[in-house]
Design a binder for these strands. Structure first.
Lengths: 224, 224
DNA sequence: AATTTCATGTAATTCGTTACATGATTCC
DNA sequence: GGAATCATGTAACGAATTACATGAAATT
């Protein structure tokens, strides 16, 4: 039960795994670096951090201020809180990363998963990418069917909207195909004809050259 | 104040302008014909219909059943309700159609507006299309700036996600450019007054040939 | 006769935003 | 010394979902 989307929770855990941070900075990273897929407000973030602490996945640490901590034991001292992932939190995040089922195929969930692909194994990445692709293909099937049923009853603009929508989905499928291709090529290694050029070596995962997300919307940086 | 998004309300009014319908059918059209941009559940739709009735924009009429109406004056008779737009509702919808300000540039709002372009004048369409384009260009600017600031700190997958996201937005801008171009080319035009016209011929507005929406997600037809 | 699809609704819950309230620090 | 930005939080509200509850009509 309880169908919670948990995207914010997931992203917070993932970001804190890289380094401890306080809420304000976390939110900025959520909305810019990772902001491709979603913008979050403080009204969402701070309460979320508190529940993550209550779950034992994060701990609060006194903020960056160097000396002041001991001198001012008095009341109003508004804390600057740095959040750090606990071992349990790390474990929990890894557990979340291992879920490759249907939930991870959905628009925003998928984007969040993809943003943390750097912390997963190739096998997991493959399952998520392929799952996403199959989800989109189902979608296309439905759109095509619906279009076929209703085509003549719709006006030009509605039709154009549907057409563009379908093309967007088709485009993402192509993107996924390339990503999957790259993942496969990943470590097995290409038959490569010649010259082992060193410059941009490494590249363990192998990414293609374009980009993409499902729903871009950083919207605004300054809360407003 | 009260910042309500009103997309559902808008779409219901727009669909009922073409023809009276009952809730069930309305929901299907919302999720298939128009479903490109959003799926709605009954838990959302039915209460919304009631408030639209309370506002005087719709009236409820006895359902399609032919004879039965007079015979069974007794209790439990679950009604089949057909909703029809009142003159006030029509007026209200036209008033909504005339808003071409910033709200109409946003992702889902824009898609909803576009879906009813057939019922607007060219001048209004132009303002909405150009507004949408400027909104996307701002977005691109922010994304580019953010990318420039953080590029080297991000891993390949995050970068790839951002790249694909930006390309999606750029693609939509190109689509808008073509639409704007077509609008300019296609002389004056019909604000179409409801009623399903058989399309094809004419090509009054002048549409380009691809398709597109901001956020495809009919997700499922069968509620669950 | 049973199943699917049509058809309408309500209650509890989830997820998130806006507006408010407060204050520290840094830049100009 | 004033503005911008950093920093943390809460309360009221909004929009929508899911699960529940009910039942009629059409199809197999």
């Amino acid at each position: 039960m309880s169908r919670r989307s948990g995207i914010l929770e997931f992203a917070v855990l993932g970001l804190l795994r890289e380094a401890p941070m306080h809420g304000y900075e976390l939110r900025k990273r959520l909305n810019t670096s990772l902001g491709i897929f979603r913008a979050f407000s403080y009204g969402t973030l701070y309460p979320c951090l508190k529940t993550l602490v209550a779950s034992g996945w994060l701990i609060e640490e006194p903020g960056s201020a160097p000396e002041e901590a001991l001198a001012s034991s008095l009341a109003g001292r508004r804390a600057k809180i740095v959040y750090r992932l606990t071992p349990e939190g790390k474990e929990h995040f890894e557990e979340l990363l291992s879920h490759t089922g249907p939930d991870a195929w959905e628009d925003e969930h998928f984007a969040a998963r993809f943003a943390f692909f750097g912390q997963t194994e190739r096998e997991v990445r493959m399952r998520v990418l392929e799952g996403r692709r199959s989800r989109l293909e189902e979608r296309l099937e439905k759109m095509r069917a619906s279009l076929a049923r209703t085509r003549e009853r719709l006006d030009d603009y509605t039709l154009e909207l549907q057409r563009h929508g379908m093309e967007s989905v088709e485009r993402e499928v192509r993107w996924l195909n390339e990503l999957i291709e790259s993942e496969r090529a990943g470590r097995d290694q290409r038959p490569d004809t010649g010259a082992p050029h060193d410059n941009d070596s490494g590249e363990t995962g192998g990414l293609p050259r374009h980009g993409g997300s499902t729903r871009p919307d950083p919207s605004d940086d300054t809360t407003k």
